[in-house]
């Protein structure tokens, strides 16, 4: 059975200015043990999608529809108690900023132990301490015996993220959701944390959903990539295809706007013109068409008809351009 199956997820936030359509018609599957990246700019809906998986979207007026099937059970129709039993045990989360994610008032040992105790009510204090010590050691915190009784502020950012990861893994989750796990960290620490996530994944056999805006992070550890734009998935492909044969003009734009070792010296970075659209007033048709270099070539179709995800080569893309043009996007034809 598919581990996690998201079907036609829609998330809308009601605000005084109007409805914010944060996520629209997002569907994807996660198989046990695989690593999937959700990539996009701020406001693309990637974090909202991730939060929805654990029903962590808070606010006065949040409307969610669709299905989030975890081993066949729909997270969205679960009772509060049922969701609580899923949180931190079947699906665990790593947040972006480790500096604020840990509770400043309790020792890290207590917080790790607590994560275990919530889902194992019978655990004794001694067991919890043992578990905390082991977890700290596993994620590479030196001197765990001394560190276990320290408070979060006594650790560096990278160390704290290790602790957050240790906490997330303490119940052997089937799915680990990492929401920008390296964004708030020093560049030198980022690679270590990614390595740790990959290592832990190998040990625990968890599937990983990695939310990021950083294509470098994607290339590092993921197998599959979903690119989101304005609340929709615009491309879904293997990591190799995403980089070598992007099949959506937006993905192409993302790749062209960052420098890599393959960028020839005379080649210039091409920023994507314009800014992401307001989620309150989305453009008609394809949400990307006002910024798309190819939209004009299709007449008015892009501004009138929203493209659905379809198979293009070995990827899936939501674009009206004909297949052969999509497959040749990186070939300089702009």
């Amino acid at each position: 059975m598919t581990l996690l199956s998201v079907r036609d997820l829609n998330v809308t936030f009601g605000t005084p200015e109007g409805d914010v359509r944060a996520v629209q018609g997002v569907s994807f599957d996660i198989e046990p043990g695989e690593t999937v990246a959700i990539v996009g700019e701020s406001g693309s809906g990637k974090s909202v999608t991730a939060n929805s998986l654990l029903r962590l979207n808070f606010g006065a007026d949040v409307r969610i529809s669709g299905e989030i099937l975890l081993e066949g059970r729909d997270v969205l129709t679960m009772t509060e108690d049922e969701v609580r039993s899923v949180r931190g045990s079947d699906m665990a989360m790593i947040f972006q900023d480790p500096l604020t994610a840990l509770n400043p008032f309790y020792t890290v040992g207590r917080q790790i132990g607590e994560a275990y105790a919530i889902h194992h009510p019978g655990a004794t204090k001694k067991e919890l301490r043992e578990i905390a010590l082991n977890s700290l050691e596993k994620v590479g915190i030196p001197e765990p015996l001394k560190r276990v009784d320290q408070y979060p502020h006594e650790f560096s950012g990278g160390m704290r993220q290790r602790i957050v990861i240790a906490m997330a893994l303490v119940n052997n989750p089937k799915i680990l959701i990492a929401d920008e796990p390296t964004t708030a960290l020093d560049v030198t620490v980022q690679a270590q944390i990614l390595e740790l996530i990959a290592e832990m994944q190998a040990q625990h056999g968890s599937a990983v959903i990695l939310i990021t805006h950083d294509l470098g992070v994607v290339a590092e550890i993921t197998e599959r990539v979903m690119v989101m734009y304005a609340g929709r998935v615009v491309e879904s492909a293997s990591v190799e295809n995403t980089f070598a044969v992007p099949t959506h003009p937006y993905t192409r734009g993302l790749l062209k706007s960052v420098k890599s070792l393959d960028t020839a010296r005379h080649e210039r970075l091409e920023p994507i013109p314009g800014t992401p659209p307001s989620l309150i007033k989305l453009p008609s048709g394809c949400p990307f068409h006002p910024r798309c270099a190819f939209a004009d070539s299709l007449g008015g179709r892009c501004s009138s008809e929203a493209p659905e995800l379809r198979i293009v080569g070995s990827s899936r893309s939501a674009c009206h351009l004909p297949d052969e043009r999509l497959l040749g996007l990186m070939g300089g034809a702009s």
Partner: peptide, 24 residues
């Protein structure tokens, strides 16, 4: 953020309110 992480850990609401929110 740490309260959100508390929720994501699966803390029951009452315990979250007392040991995380009120405490702070």
């Amino acid at each position: 953020e740490f309260v959100r992480l508390g929720i994501a850990k699966g803390l029951p609401r009452k315990r979250l309110i007392v040991t995380y929110v009120m405490r702070a």
